[in-house]
Design a protein around this nucleic acid. Structure first.
Length: 862
RNA sequence: GCCGGGAUGGCGGAACUGGUAGACGCGCCAGACUCAAAAUCUGGUACCCGCAAGGGUGUGCGAGUUCGAUUCUCGCUCCCGGCACCA
């Protein structure tokens, strides 16, 4: 063993060993307990960023820990490879998206290997490989047959200059990002996946998941289940107006109706009304973006039509209102300004009647003209004819029943969740496997799958959408031999990432999408990734899992049993304002000044020595110039230091603040650990592996270290295995090393020092696997540490003869006392009263009460 | 606006079930080694008073429950994240 810790040498040796022994390749073994640990696979953008490093280190620590627990651990890695950035890069550099993507994959794969992650690379794939998306296409043809994949008209952002569809993020301030032309809304046919069929199941199953509450709540809100009534309001001289309401208890308070600008009634009414037609057109112009809707004021116009409130026969005006959404419910509402804030705002603006029909049950008076009162709790109906005097639930039930009896409508559950629009009119994606033949729309037969994305011919625009590639579009109907056209839409890249976790189980199968191995590995036991995927990716993946289950491909109902969402990696920012412009400086270019207590007093730019402003701590980003390149850190300190820093600095679900000097501290610890082990192994013989410490021969100091070793094992096992608190686990290891360094070199304590060092090396092996690989060998072990078992805490080692208790007087700490471990209450109390400082504070008075918490404290109340 | 999470030394954080607040680390201060520096090692480091022993204060703010509250309850303030006209 080298006296000096050389991370590069150590890490290359360990990685070479793992590679040569195929250490992380796994096969299915029904006799062993499996553990499938998955980190969200990356988009191959070019280089890893710190967020990736954090994500993958967390996953790797869990995987390596579970392996040491004896589980059959699968930890795969792949590439979420389709998507817009490849097209952008292609346009900038004139390199085909595929080439750019595969080059990035090669580079990033080398980076991942350099970090020493325990991946089974034999299962690697990129989603842009035809061998992957072939099965996606195959599944889609099955879904098409079931009606779960269907086509209908939908609005898109259309760039009239570039003649192309734009993604939402390509629309900047209502203009195309490249052309600068105002974006138009255009209706074109779109493919949809019918996720709404699964809304109820997706909602109910959330309760079964061991996920962070924040994520579960977000998914529940996204699905947005509501119970209400769908019913008709008769219209003078027209078809009845069907509306949806969750508040049938307020039906007597309806003073107008409102329909969306796209509603048939509005369009019909506009036929003879130029002003109304102009208003509808204006509503259509407004952007589809959320930002536009957010700021939009409530606007509307009367249609001249009137509806009849079936509850009381009143004749009420029908308005068009821009706050009514065509895509939810029926695109029409009954407006109750007294008890709905939006309706209230609208009514005030247009001078419509505001009427109170519910009131606080305790009789409190309300000024309903000033503000809407919307409570469902502690309310009672008023001014509601035969339904007056009821609670929300009673009014809901009786009025709903009444409407059902009148044949005007029925109770109905609605969801906010919409069907998933999966069409993209772009090149770099998975082609939708459909042909348009003379007989209509038909799925591509299995034998003709995959529909391969065409490559790029010389001189061709490498990003031209499929519709502009005649060689791709024109084909023949395999059934008739007659001319046919291929579908030219490609799929949203979220589709590929919705089932990749399953394909890892059997990535080499070229005869089926999934096989029986999927049921061995699934569901994923631990999924690790960013909170930014809390809704879409995680919901779509759950949906696809159910689709695959209903296709008989898997038997489980949910894909991810346990979810860990890691926090962002953030860093300090530094800037200067010059002439109204802000220039951001990288933390590495800045020297921070401190006072003699360590408090930051200012910062100067290294280059010119002049002050810069200290900005807020923010997520690492190019715009704030505060990113730290993992590659540079790995080259400087080695992978283990970076891994250790990431794990010991914050709990995984919290933000992690980057600090160069704290990274230095992690490096220091590894050097120290190395040196302590080196001194230990070079100053005497080593016990045979597995030799137990002879407790009988230990003195007090030796017993204390022996005890601390086992207490640390117990704590770290709990922190890593149950709590996922890697920061406190590392801290406990550091404490044990601090204790070891006090005993190191003492011949009488050699056995307990050896035991402690072995425990630390085993417990840190998941975090700093390379260093521990070398140290484990140095401690006399022939087999590698990845095959060692996680240490077990020995309860007898942790037993204490004596315990130190804290003594309080009136709840204030006044002293300490050491008593026998099993001492009874009276003994403990007596001992506590003898402590000088305690006696002084009790002051001879007789205690009113003495509280004894065994093993912890004594509180004397006087 | 609604939903979720949070606020602890100069900084990151610890205290898991109501029981020693500040583990571990960073930074800072002092010392050892060194011609010097780096590296390493030792000690100190919440704040105030005190040579010390010790005392007082202290977990965003204000109340409450309790022998005892960072932890529980109520009412605020601020910060972060998500959703946002879903009838």
């Amino acid at each position: 063993m080298d006296a000096r810790y050389e991370p590069e040498t150590v890490e290359h040796a360990a990685q070479a060993f793992w590679e040569a022994s195929d250490a992380f390749r796994v096969t299915e073994d029904p006799t062993r307990e499996k553990f499938y640990c998955l980190s969200m696979f990356p988009y191959p953008s070019g280089r890893l960023h710190m967020g990736h490093v954090r994500n993958y280190t967390i996953g790797d620590v869990i995987s390596r820990y579970q392996r040491m627990r004896g589980k059959n651990v699968l930890q795969p890695m792949g590439w979420d490879a389709f998507g817009l950035p490849a097209e952008n890069a292609a346009m900038q550099n004139n390199v085909p998206p595929a080439e750019w993507t595969y080059e990035n994959i090669e580079y990033m794969k080398a980076q991942l290997k350099r970090l020493g992650f325990a991946y089974d690379w034999s299962r690697e794939f990129a989603t842009c490989d035809p061998s992957y998306y072939r099965w996606e296409q195959w599944l889609l043809t099955r879904l098409h047959a079931k009606g779960l994949l269907y086509r209908r008209m939908a609005e898109v952002n259309w760039d009239p200059v570039d003649q192309t569809v734009l993604a939402n993020e390509q629309v900047i301030d209502g203009r195309g990002w490249r052309s600068g032309a105002p974006v138009q809304r255009r209706e074109i046919p779109h493919w949809f996946l019918k996720i709404t069929d699964y809304a109820e199941e997706l909602l109910e199953a959330i309760d079964t998941l061991d996920w962070p509450d924040a994520v579960k709540t977000m998914q529940r809100n996204w699905i947005g289940r509501s119970e209400g009534v769908e019913m008709d309001f008769p219209v003078d001289g027209g078809d009845p107006l069907r509306i949806y309401t969750t508040r049938p208890d307020t039906l007597f308070g309806v003073t107008f109706m409102a329909v969306a600008a796209g509603h048939p009634l509005a369009i019909d009414a506009a036929k003879g009304d130029a002003k109304l037609a102009a208003f509808l057109e204006e509503c259509r112009q407004g952007g589809t973006s959320e930002a536009a809707l957010e700021t939009a004021e409530k606007q509307g116009m009367a249609t001249g039509r009137y509806a009849i409130n079936p509850m009381n026969g009143e004749r009420i005006p029908v308005w068009v209102a821009n706050y009514v959404l065509m895509g939810y419910g029926t695109g029409a509402i009954m407006a109750v300004p007294g008890h709905d804030e939006r309706d209230h705002e609208f009514a005030r603006r247009y001078g419509l009647e505001i009427r109170q029909v519910i009131a606080p049950a305790d009789g409190t008076a309300l000024d309903i003209q000033a503000a809407a009162w919307t409570s469902k709790e502690d309310m009672v109906t008023v001014n509601s004819g035969q339904f007056t005097g009821l609670s929300f639930q009673a009014a809901f039930d009786r009025i709903a029943e009444h409407i059902e009896q009148l044949g005007l409508g029925e109770r109905r559950v609605n969801y906010r969740l919409r069907d998933w629009g999966v069409s993209r009119q772009r090149y770099w994606g998975c082609p939708v496997p459909v042909l348009h033949t003379e007989a209509g729309e038909v799925p591509v037969p299995d034998a003709l799958l995959p529909v391969v994305l065409p490559g790029n011919a010389e001189g061709e625009d490498p990003t031209a959408p499929l519709a502009k590639r005649p060689g791709f579009v024109e084909t023949t109907d395999p059934a008739t031999g007659r001319p046919a056209r291929r579908e030219t839409d490609t799929l949203d890249t979220f589709v590929e990432s919705s089932w990749y976790f399953a394909r890892f189980a059997c990535a080499d199968n070229d005869a089926a999408m999934l096989d029986e191995r999927a049921d061995y590995w699934l569901p994923v036991d631990q999924y690790v990734g960013g909170i930014e995927h809390a809704i879409l990716h995680l919901l779509y993946a759950r949906f696809f899992h159910k689709l695959m289950r209903d296709e008989g491909l898997v038997s489980s109902g949910e894909p991810f049993t346990n979810l860990l969402t890691q926090g962002m990696v953030v860093a300090e920012t530094f800037y200067r304002e010059q002439g109204g412009r802000t220039t951001w400086y990288a933390p590495a270019e800045v020297v921070v000044a401190r006072d003699d207590k360590g408090k930051v007093t200012g910062a100067r730019l290294q280059a010119d020595g002049q002050p810069v402003e200290v900005g807020p701590i923010e997520k690492m980003s190019k715009s704030k110039n505060n990113g730290v390149d993992p590659q540079a850190m790995i080259e400087r300190y080695g992978a283990d230091t970076v891994r250790l820093y990431m794990m010991e600095t914050s709990p995984p679900d919290q933000m992690l603040e980057w600090s160069d000097s704290a990274v230095e501290g992690a490096a220091r610890f590894l050097r120290r650990l190395w040196r302590i082990v080196h001194e230990h192994v070079s100053t005497g013989g080593l016990p045979a592996p597995g030799t137990a410490v002879d407790v009988a021969t230990l003195d007090d100091a030796g017993r204390a270290l022996h005890r601390q070793t086992h207490e640390t094992i117990a704590k770290v096992s709990d922190d890593v295995g149950r709590r996922y608190k890697f920061n406190t686990a590392v801290a406990a290891c550091r404490e044990l090393i601090n204790a070891v360094s006090e005993r190191a070199g003492e011949p009488t304590h050699r056995a307990v020092v050896h035991e402690a060092l072995e425990a630390v090396v085993l417990m840190l092996a998941p975090v700093v696997p390379h260093a521990c690989h070398a140290l484990w060998h140095a401690l006399g072990h022939g087999s590698p540490v990845i095959d060692a078992r996680w240490p077990e805490a020995d309860p007898s080692a942790m037993a204490r003869d004596e315990v130190e208790l804290v003594v309080q007087v009136n709840g204030k700490l006044r002293g300490r006392v050491t008593v026998a471990a099993g001492a009874d209450r009276d003994t403990v109390t007596a001992a506590a009263m003898q402590v000088e400082n305690v006696a002084r504070h009790v002051g001879g008075k007789s205690p009113r009460k003495v509280i004894v918490v065994p093993g912890k404290l004594v509180n004397v109340v006087v």
